[in-house]
Amino acid sequence: MQSQINLNTNWLLIKLSLILSFFPLLCFGNAGSSMMYFGLLHCAILNIFIGIAESIVLKKFKLSNHTWLIIIANYISAFIGLYFIAPYFSTITGNEGFWWGGKNDNLGYGLKGFFVGMAASFIATLIIEYPIFYLALKDRSKKNRLLGPFFIANFITNVIMTLVYYWIIVG
């Protein structure tokens, strides 16, 4: 009975997250951009699911880990990557407003700047998260096997998030 309740709760959280992830596409007006709102959702809620997904990838490679530490790693790297690294590199390559696209309607958005910012953010993510993923390993004797699965987990989640952000921009 308890596992049925947990399963129902997990599905409810997944459905709620999906609904909330599409909410920014409906936001119009001058209070902010859909890119900004999704970034806030990403930093507030989606990092939990990203951390769980990355933890599952590690477990598929027989690297048992503390999921909560991987979730913390994602919060730290998302905050630094999305609010400092990506906007900085996006700006120096020609996009003067990573979150705003230079206009409220995203029509003048510098996609080159967006992709450079997201790539720089991915590299920063790898640097920031690796030590925390190492600490998350339950069996540190397997540390030599961590790099490949760590890269795969982060590559998958970063590509998905970049595609979602791109989809929001080009809408």
Rank of each mutant, 00 (worst) to 15 (best):
G148H: 00
I19Q: 02
F122T: 08
N8Q: 06
P87A: 03
L46C: 07
L147M: 11
P24C: 08
Y37M: 13
N8G: 10
L46W: 12
N144A: 15
K142R: 15
G81M: 06
L147A: 09
F28E: 07
K59D: 11
T9I: 09
L26F: 15
G102Y: 10
G110R: 09
I52S: 02
G32S: 14
L46K: 05
L111W: 12
P149M: 04
N104R: 00
L82T: 07
H66R: 12
S77F: 03
T9A: 10
L25M: 13
K138A: 07
S34I: 03
F89E: 03
G108I: 10
S3F: 00
L107N: 15
W99N: 00
R145I: 03
F114H: 14
G29A: 00
K138E: 15
F115V: 15
E129C: 13
W100A: 13
I71C: 07
L147D: 03
Y109S: 06
G171L: 09
M36A: 11
V57Y: 12
Q4Y: 04
F133T: 00
D105W: 00
W100R: 15
L147G: 01
I132C: 13
I52D: 08
L126I: 10
F98A: 00
I45E: 10
I156T: 07
V116N: 15
K59C: 07
D139C: 01
L135V: 05
G148T: 03
Y88A: 01
A78K: 07
V57M: 12
I5K: 08
A73C: 03
N6S: 09
G39D: 10
A31K: 10
A31M: 09
N47K: 07
L40P: 01
F89G: 01
Y165R: 06
D139F: 01
G171W: 05
W68S: 12
C43D: 12
L12I: 06
L82C: 03
D139T: 00
G101P: 14
F89Q: 01
F23I: 12
A136H: 06
K143R: 15
I50L: 13
W167Q: 08
T162S: 10
G171K: 13
F155I: 04
K138M: 06
S90N: 11
F22H: 06
I156W: 05
L18G: 11
A73N: 01
W99I: 04
F98G: 02
H66C: 05
M1G: 11
H66N: 14
L58T: 04
I52M: 12
K142M: 11
